[in-house]
């Protein structure tokens, strides 16, 4: 008896978003017209992209096991960027300007722009630039970075439902992409995209950050919200069909389980392996739920996730792909 397995066809597709411009070698994400990883029944012009997180100042609270691979370059963003791309093979980078936070060094917008500029000099991959967290300071910092790095197609992280106008304006003015962040909620994600569209932001230049719950800390909420966003996108909702970015490393390494030493909890096993497994499990689970960009901290996680994805998408390294905007399933204005 043969199996009558009908491929599922959908009305909609994800938008295709290209990160990086100017001196960047661009990376395009999204564009798929099926459920995540369902390559047996849908077309995916791009594989999920893997980013590593680097920081402007020494991230003193990172645990030893995730500091170790970055030894010597923590708090030196240009050198960390070189290592992340040349040695660890990141497709793109997230530059976390944590030092601009008023409580963590209060670095100035000028310093922040200089840090990002140094990273742009050091590597040619696209950058996501993350500010110190919603508020006045974030807007000043990211506005300055956006202006000084005009035309580089950065992704500014992040606009929120309460505070999006400044970043929307500078993204449009200086040719950057924008990450819209909403708190694990389909409706708020949609509302934010509507607000951004109303502010003249091209949604083909927007990523959704639905807020990542790490393994054991709300992962299931992110998982289901992301599945629902993907279903809405495939159903043709042009306000929810932007690719999703997940800040996996930050959340996974925040977990107590990734930080507690083996001698404190003998049943929990090796701390180093446990932490990496925590990040791997979070990343893989969220890719299954529809993450198109995952931001990681440990290079071993990146390597392991890349090997998994090779099974679906083949093994050519993504920065060797020229002309990444070919083969487009881009959702354009006719879907609106």
């Amino acid at each position: 008896m043969s199996l009558d397995l009908k491929p599922k066809k959908w009305a909609g597709a994800l938008r295709e978003v290209t990160l990086g411009a100017g001196s960047r070698r661009p990376v395009a994400v999204g564009g798929g017209n099926g459920l995540p990883l369902h390559t047996f029944e849908a077309a995916f012009p791009h594989r999920p992209a893997l980013a590593l997180e680097i920081t402007d100042v020494d991230p003193v609270r990172w645990v030893e096991s995730v500091r170790q691979p970055w030894e010597g370059v923590l708090g030196r963003p240009a050198e960390a960027a070189r290592r992340a791309v040349a040695d660890f093979g990141a497709d793109l980078l997230l530059v976390h300007l944590m030092g601009t936070h008023t409580d963590r060094g209060n670095r100035s917008p000028e310093q922040a722009a200089a840090d990002v500029g140094a990273v742009l000099e050091a590597v040619n991959v696209p950058l996501i630039v993350k500010g110190p967290g919603a508020g006045q300071k974030q807007n000043t910092v990211l506005a300055r970075v956006a202006e000084d790095c005009r035309g580089e197609g950065l992704a500014l992280h992040s606009a929120t439902n309460e505070d999006y106008k400044t970043l929307a304006a500078v993204a449009v003015a200086y040719g950057h992409a924008l990450v819209g962040e909403s708190p694990i909620d389909v409706n708020m994600a949609k509302q934010l995209n509507i607000l951004l569209a109303d502010s003249n932001v091209d949604l083909n230049r927007v990523l959704i950050d639905p807020l990542t719950g790490g393994l054991g800390y709300g992962l299931e909420y992110s998982y289901s919200v992301m599945e629902r966003i993907r279903l809405a996108a495939l159903g043709g909702d042009a306000m929810l069909n932007c690719p999703i970015v997940c800040l996996v490393g930050e959340e996974a390494w925040k977990a107590k389980e990734a930080k507690v030493p083996a001698d404190k909890e003998p049943l929990w096993g090796s701390q180093r392996e446990r932490g990496i497994h925590w990040e791997v499990a979070t990343a893989m689970t969220l890719i299954e739920a529809g993450a198109e960009v995952v931001v990681l901290r440990h290079p071993e996680t990146l390597d392991r996730i890349r090997k998994q994805l090779d099974s679906w998408f083949g093994s050519e390294p993504s920065h060797d792909r020229e002309g990444v905007v070919q083969n487009s399933f881009r959702a354009t204005d006719e879907h609106r």
């Binding site: 393994l215 054991g216 992962l219 299931e220 998982y223 289901s224 389980e257 909890e265 003998p266 049943l267 929990w268 096993g269 090796s270 701390q271 392996e273 446990r274 497994h277 925590w278 499990a281 689970t285």
Partner: peptide, 20 residues
């Protein structure tokens, strides 16, 4: 058989099988 493998998997199962 190490906790570094089992703990993430138990936790993942707990997350996925929570009643949404």
């Amino acid at each position: 058989c190490g906790g570094e493998t089992w703990l993430p998997l138990w936790t993942l199962r707990q997350n996925i099988y929570t009643d949404p």
